[in-house]
Design a protein around this nucleic acid. Structure first.
Lengths: 230, 230
DNA sequence: TCAAAACCTTGATATTCGTCAAGGTTTTTT
DNA sequence: AAAAAACCTTGACGAATATCAAGGTTTTGA
């Protein structure tokens, strides 16, 4: 994990992040003074469960997973962060130790925004506060959906649900889904073992609802998937 | 569900809510103009899954449960709101339909804060925005814990965890826990059937870790409970 | 205070999903 | 291009937890 880049480049990068797109340019420059760019290598841990948050992060490039650890290494991946997304804001506001850990899936570039840089800005710019409220609300909504899936739905329903979310538009009956990562990663996000995920795909294929070839899943009958949800 | 009280009384009630305790009195009075007090009877539904949010709520008195519905009525209770707590803020900011429904467990009094009342204030008072950020962050943190419990822990571990959270202080070995509601409500919050909950309590009793009498659980060996978590 | 309703427990059984193990396939590295 | 590593699938099995059913207990309320 190493530091890089001058302040000006950082200000430029920050401006491109949706969260800060409406912030006064001067304020962004001021904030950039406190921001560092980190390079995190594949497999490297950005923060551990139990670490104290000192700010939050924005992913510029690469892929970062947030996951619950487990003794036998059977981690459960909560979320896969993609470039342009921020993470860790809520834990920063709370000031409690991280309940999850974060790890780079591939070599990644991350902005580290210290708490001071943000709290100062929040006092000046209520729009930023509203944007952060919106951002955290989205997170919260996703967590609720995740929890519902986890506690109310069977494995096949969770997979079907994921495939439906990947539909290009509401009514489409046939479409291709390109899995965003290795199957075992996707399985973990659905709170499934790779074995169960594989078996579910098998069953859905047998039923003529999908066709699988590698990481591409061809949905043949979206309506049929919907019916699984009851 | 009926309306009641004059504006002045509402302003008074609002001031007592932690969220608004630092807001300028004049602003609270202005906000009170738009706020209604609702009376919700036991069993009545405040909002359904799928309804469009128009604001958020603060519970003054009573008990409100937030839950996922299910066809066969085997709902899963996500959270039990207690007096003084607010709910629905995040969904208001998102403007998406409620993913859960809310129901009064007993006759309750609720403040209905429409979106306009809050968004106006947010522009004026950044401290309120920060407080709301903190409030939503807490919610988010709880959801993460809930999801972790749900996907990483066994039934006995979830029960033990709940009993640990109810400890009066960190080190105490023996203490009484008064369940906040009927056992089947508590079971649902732990994502357990009442049957499984009952059996877990039985096992913990057999192991000499607890004693159960009605809704009071006497923890005999907090250290033993902790060891269950591994 | 008695009846009804809600709540809780216990047993038998079924289902879902995870674990373990082995073999095959694809991707990466040398 | 070969070797190694990572990834994926399949089968046999087991464990955890839900479901169904019945009976007991407590609470509510008429």
């Amino acid at each position: 994990m190493m530091m890089a880049k001058r302040s000006n480049d950082l200000a430029e990068a920050l401006r491109r992040v949706p969260l800060f797109s409406k912030v006064e340019p001067d304020d962004v420059v001021a904030m950039a003074e406190h921001v560092r760019e980190l390079h995190v290598e594949r497999g490297e841990i950005l923060f551990q469960k139990g670490d104290q948050p000192h700010g939050f992060y924005i992913l510029l490039e690469g892929r970062i997973t947030l996951a619950f650890p487990s003794e036998q290494g059977t981690e459960r991946i909560l979320e896969v962060i993609k470039p342009g997304e921020s993470f860790g804001e809520a834990l920063m506001f709370l000031g409690q130790p991280y309940p999850i850990f974060s790890q780079a899936g591939v070599d990644s570039r991350v902005l580290d925004i210290p708490e001071e840089a943000i709290t100062n800005l929040l006092d000046k710019d209520c729009r930023l506060a509203k944007r952060m409220l919106a951002g955290i609300s989205i997170r919260l909504h996703e967590l609720i959906s995740n929890l519902e899936a986890c506690s109310m739905r069977s494995s096949a329903q969770r997979v079907a649900c994921m495939l439906q979310h990947a539909a290009p538009s509401a009514g489409t009956q046939e479409y291709d889904v390109q899995l965003p990562a290795a199957k075992h990663i996707v399985a973990s996000q659905l709170n499934l073992t790779p074995e169960t995920f594989s078996r579910v795909l098998h069953v859905l294929t047998e039923s003529g609802l999908i066709e699988v070839s590698g990481r591409v899943i061809k949905v043949l009958n979206a309506e049929g998937l919907r019916k699984l949800q009851l």
